[in-house]
Simulated scan of single mutants.
Amino acid sequence: MLSCLLLLTACHSATSSLEETETCVGYPDAQTSAYLLPYETGASYRVFQGNCAPPKAPWTHYAKARYAYDVEMPIGAKIVAARAGTVVFIREQFTDRQHAQEQGNALVVLHDDNTVALYGHLTQNGALAELGQRVEQGETIALSGNSGQSGNVPHLHFQVNACPDFDACESVPVTFRNARPNPGRLIQGERYTAE
Rank of each mutant, 00 (worst) to 15 (best):
L8T: 13
T9A: 06
A10K: 11
A10H: 07
H12M: 06
H12I: 05
H12S: 06
S13W: 15
A14S: 14
T15G: 14
S17N: 05
L18Q: 13
E19K: 08
T21S: 12
E22T: 11
Y27S: 01
P28I: 09
D29H: 06
A30W: 03
T32H: 08
T32E: 07
S33W: 03
S33N: 11
S33D: 04
A34W: 00
A34Y: 00
Y35I: 12
Y35D: 13
Y35L: 15
L36I: 04
L37F: 04
P38C: 01
P38Y: 01
Y39G: 09
Y39Q: 04
Y39C: 04
E40Q: 15
E40D: 15
E40T: 15
E40G: 15
T41E: 15
T41C: 12
A43C: 10
Y45V: 08
V47W: 02
V47F: 06
V47N: 02
V47M: 05
V47S: 02
Q49K: 00
P54N: 04
P54L: 09
P54A: 10
P58S: 02
W59D: 09
T60A: 11
T60W: 12
T60L: 12
T60F: 06
H61E: 07
H61M: 05
H61Y: 08
Y62M: 03
A63K: 13
K64R: 12
R66N: 11
R66F: 04
Y67R: 03
Y67K: 01
Y69H: 06
D70P: 02
D70A: 05
V71I: 11
E72P: 14
E72T: 15
M73T: 06
M73I: 09
M73C: 12
M73G: 09
P74N: 10
I75S: 02
G76K: 04
A77Q: 02
A77G: 01
A77D: 03
K78P: 13
I79A: 06
I79T: 09
A81D: 05
A81Q: 06
A81V: 08
R83A: 05
R83N: 04
A84R: 10
A84V: 04
A84K: 10
A84L: 08
G85L: 01
V87G: 02
V87E: 02
V88P: 00
V88I: 13
V88E: 00
F89D: 00
